[in-house]
Write a protein that binds this DNA or RNA. Structure first.
Length: 455
RNA sequence: GUGGUUGUAGCUCAGUUGGUUAGAGCGCUUGAUUGUGGUUCAAGAGGUCGCCGGUUCGAACCCGGUCUUCCACCCCA
């Protein structure tokens, strides 16, 4: 028989993996809650029109579409059917699609429930999302996002708090030395304006984002291919040697963008955030201005965040976010500013694993196993087990009257710390023979002694 | 979506220019040990060589397709 399998880019999680994922998720949840965010959940799939067109052409291609039910082909217009154009026919045979991220469904949620929501609304959401991407290292077709967003406030204190929240979570995860990169869309607009390349803002930012990957010449080459002039590239030159403290970077930017109103706005926004953070201090994270940071969706309008793992861990970004002034505008609710961040659970998992940062105690396990010697003995064991469980001690009875060797082997493989042997002799003495699996020692004890011995 | 890569026992992997019956280690089962796991020793089970097709007297090996793995690009968490 053919072995069953799962679709590419998806994974099964065993007991240890689930325990470890829960460990990460709980830390993130507790932090979200501590900063005043409240949980919501939205459906796995949305109406296609809610999602399509929100992530660009590339995004549309990566959205999993769900076929209509019933005899959907018979309802398709013959002309469209015979054209065999996949893009054209999609909207006729599919009207639902799997969630691609948590931000757009959240925007939909806010617009739909605007009359029930008290603004500013701080929500967090931890759910899987799906992308029809080709999998590679740290990239899956089904993965979890952990998002926290605020809508209905333009205050830059939100940005400040998000930086603190990142620092807090990664510190609690014992992942020290992450870098929180920050940039501002307005600065990018300002640069494009000064260059005279406003029309090519997206092409320009996408190319600039690749600086650390393909280098200065690579970026210039890509910009030339996108039709950005030599004259404009010359004005861009100072950016390629952008070093120093936040203050130095901002001062240099100020000179460069002095003629751009929007650019100066962006600089002032970033300056507030970095100056405030330096007054408040961070525990273990580094906050770094990176003007090449252009990641992110077309809807970011202010701050842009990205978190990268400590040096020596090649994992791309493990978190990201930013401000979007008009996200809900796409659903008809104007003038609601939002800002949010996301944690990449699956990638954080891989980083913690690589750096061996999961605590030992994460793997909760049965503490004590009672050997099964038969029906009478099992009843005797079960009475003790029930009492132990009432004291929150994980205990179990081996379910079958199997050979000792097998039962002991089970305890050994499950890594259970204690085994109780209670046969006829022990029953007569109202005693339990407790064996410590680590040391091999064993003692005959009464129930109270047993309970204290294993604590 | 583009280019490359991988697939042999439960797991990690050998397998010669194409040549009888496809191997190893670990794991598994049983026994040495009917109230004692790990260590040791002995024996045993386990494979449609990813799948489909082609070349050949003969294919794990060569060719084509397909699925899968991983990597790079695009894009992104």
């Amino acid at each position: 028989m053919k072995k069953p399998s799962i679709p590419k880019g998806t994974r099964d999680f065993g007991p240890e993996e689930v325990t470890r994922r829960n460990y990460i998720m709980n830390i993130i949840k507790q932090a979200f809650s501590l900063y005043g965010f409240q949980p919501i959940e939205t459906p796995s799939f949305e109406n296609s029109e809610t999602l399509m067109g929100k992530y660009g052409d590339e995004g549309d291609r990566l959205i999993f579409k769900i076929l209509n039910s019933g005899d959907f082909l018979s309802k398709v217009d013959t002309e469209i059917y015979t054209e065999k154009d996949s893009n054209k026919i999609t909207s006729h045979i599919s009207e639902k699609a799997l969630r691609y991220d948590l931000t757009v469904p959240f925007a939909r949620y806010v617009v739909q429930h605007q009359n029930e929501i008290t603004f500013p609304f701080k929500r967090y959401q931890i759910q899987p999302v799906w992308r029809a991407d080709r999998p590679q290292k740290g990239r899956f077709r089904e993965f979890f996002q952990c998002d926290a967003d605020v809508v209905g406030s333009t205050s830059l204190w939100q940005e400040v708090e998000f930086v603190q929240l990142y620092d807090d979570v990664f510190n609690k995860l014992n992942l020290k030395g992450v870098t929180i990169k920050i940039n501002n869309r307005k600065i990018l607009s300002g640069i494009a304006e000064v260059m005279g390349a406003e029309e090519q803002l997206i092409d320009f930012t996408v190319a600039l984002d690749k600086l650390d990957k393909i280098g200065e010449e690579g970026v210039k080459k890509e910009m030339r291919e996108k039709g950005i002039s030599e004259n404009a590239l010359e004005k861009l030159q100072p950016l390629f040697s952008f070093k120093g403290t936040s203050e130095e970077k901002l001062n240099n930017l100020e000179k460069m963008l002095s003629t751009s109103e929007v650019g100066i706005m962006g600089i002032n926004e970033i300056r507030f955030i970095t100056e405030t953070i330096s007054k408040l201090g961070l525990q273990t994270a580094n906050l770094e201005i990176d003007v090449t940071l252009a990641r992110g969706l077309n809807y970011y309008t202010g701050a842009i965040f990205e978190v990268v793992a400590p040096d020596g861990v090649a994992m791309g970004s493990i978190g990201g976010g930013g401000r979007y002034d008009d996200l809900t505008g796409i659903f008809g609710l104007k003038n609601v500013s939002g800002v949010g961040i996301s944690f990449g659970l699956d990638r954080i998992y891989l980083v913690l694993e690589q750096l061996n940062l999961f605590p030992e105690t994460v793997s909760a396990n049965t503490k004590i196993l009672f050997i099964n010697f038969g029906e009478k003995e099992s009843l005797y064991a079960m009475e003790a087990i029930s009492k132990l469980r009432k004291s929150q001690i994980a205990a179990e009875l081996y379910p079958d009257e199997a050979k000792m060797g097998k039962q002991m082997g089970y305890a050994d493989k499950r890594n259970i710390a204690f085994v109780v042997l209670a046969g006829e002799k022990e029953m007569n003495e109202k005693a339990y023979t407790l064996k410590n699996m680590k040391t091999g020692e064993q003692f005959s004890l009464n129930f109270d002694e047993l309970k204290t011995a294993i604590k």
